[in-house]
Simulated assay, not measured.
Amino acid sequence: MGLENLQKAPGSTHSTKRLGRGQGSGLGKTAGRGGKGQTARTGSHEKRGFEGGQQPLQRRLPKVGFYSRFEKPYVINVEKISAVKELSEITVDTIRTVHKMSSSVKVVKLIGASAKGLASKIKDENVKFSGQN
């Protein structure tokens, strides 16, 4: 297969700016850098967010957000999912047999009016009920 006929798409390339070639070129004298000052100098670079000595916006605004190191429990309302009430013993694995939940779930919290009454059936420390920490 011949690669000799490959050409760049029309308009995809531009000629390079030829700086400092006289006033008639439009890029003479200051060579497109404006007047004097810090930005006209070679190697000029300001830090991202620098505002000329004014307190930068990212430092004027308060810090936002928080990431908790504690895993939130998967909450099940036993009034709505009554199949959990009928289980003889309640563990995370037995709840999975009657209620579809992600395999990443490790801690379950039972809520609802009758959740406290199920305390004697709970055989797993990863299953908690409302009112219990």
Rank of each mutant, 00 (worst) to 15 (best):
M1Y: 15
E4G: 00
N5G: 00
Q7R: 07
A9D: 14
P10A: 07
S12F: 04
T13M: 09
T13G: 03
T13W: 08
H14I: 11
H14P: 01
H14V: 13
S15Y: 06
K17R: 03
R18F: 13
L19K: 05
L19D: 12
G20A: 00
G20R: 01
Q23H: 05
Q23D: 11
Q23V: 11
G24E: 11
S25P: 11
G28W: 06
K29V: 15
T30R: 01
A31E: 15
R33P: 03
G37N: 09
G37A: 11
Q38I: 13
T39Q: 06
T39W: 10
T39S: 04
T39N: 07
T42I: 15
T42H: 09
T42Y: 13
S44G: 11
E46Y: 14
K47N: 13
G49R: 01
F50C: 06
G52P: 07
G52Y: 08
G53P: 06
Q54I: 15
Q54D: 15
P56G: 12
L57K: 05
Q58I: 13
Q58P: 01
Q58C: 05
L61Q: 12
L61R: 08
P62I: 13
K63C: 09
V64Q: 03
F66H: 14
Y67G: 03
Y67A: 05
S68Q: 02
S68A: 01
R69E: 12
F70S: 05
K72P: 08
P73Y: 07
P73W: 09
P73K: 03
V75G: 00
I76T: 10
N77M: 11
N77F: 10
V78M: 05
E79S: 06
K80L: 13
I81N: 09
S82I: 12
S82R: 04
K85E: 12
K85N: 08
E86L: 04
E86N: 05
L87V: 09
L87K: 02
S88W: 13
I90H: 06
T91H: 01
T91P: 01
V92W: 03
D93Y: 01
D93H: 00
T94D: 11
T94Q: 06
T94V: 09
T97W: 10
K100A: 09
M101E: 08
S103P: 09
S104T: 14
K106M: 10
K109N: 10
L110R: 02
I111N: 01
G112C: 00
A113Q: 01
G117C: 06
L118Q: 03
A119D: 10
S120R: 12
K121G: 04
I122P: 02
I122G: 02
K123E: 11
D124N: 03
F129C: 10
G131N: 03
Q132K: 05
